[in-house]
Amino acid sequence: MALITCQNLCLGYDGQEILHGLSFKVNSGDYLCIVGENGSGKSTLMRTILGLQKPLAGQILTGDGLRISEIGYLPQQTPVQKDFPASVREVVLSGFEGSCRWRPFYTKAEKQRAEDNIRSMGIEHLTARCYRELSGGQQQRVLLARALCATSKLLFLDEPVSGLDPKVTAEMYDLIEKLNREQGITIIMISHDIDAALRYASLVLHIGDRVFFGNREAYRSSGIANLFVKGGVTG
């Protein structure tokens, strides 16, 4: 059975529909890239799959014994209040909270993994800094490290490279690919970067006026990408 199956999904807010009749499947080990214009409902789709809001209609089924505590999530925007006192270490460690259940502290192994994730994001010099005093790109990396702490199976990324410089963007894509290839973590990523989608992802979901779901070869030949990005995509 597929890891995630969406059947005839209708999405929207307060009964106002923004997408309907969406069906697709994600298997373990897949790398799905969701593309579409601003406001087409990508973040809404992700939030709905994560159970943060209810679908207007349709079903979301999970399989392969997926538990919610095995999911990592990088939100598009984190509404952290301006004055919140939180160090980078505290933020990253909070990624483990979902798997703690009633345990009131973090284990040695968890702390070690948090350190590792902080290092792989290249922010070890910021560990003791206050989260809200970091630059946008630095905050993004902290949240990614947190997402990595939360996951062992499935990682949801909402525009993971927005605000990152080109070098770190490339590193980020490599890292995500490594997680997918080597650790078998399923990736569901929203991106406006069609080039990257066509280079790394195994599946593409395009939403908007025209909806497409299939592997990247089919997407390339469908020509929808060319409609979406003026000037076309070479690949």
């Binding site: 994560l50 505590s69 990592g72 984190t78 919140f84 505290e90 798997s99 009131p104 939360a150």
Partner: peptide, 23 residues
Amino acid sequence: FVFFYHKVFAVTFDESFAAATGV
């Protein structure tokens, strides 16, 4: 408070992330 300290942090800092990851 001591028992729920980390939970209080997680829920206060970013409630939707916490909810999405199983808290």
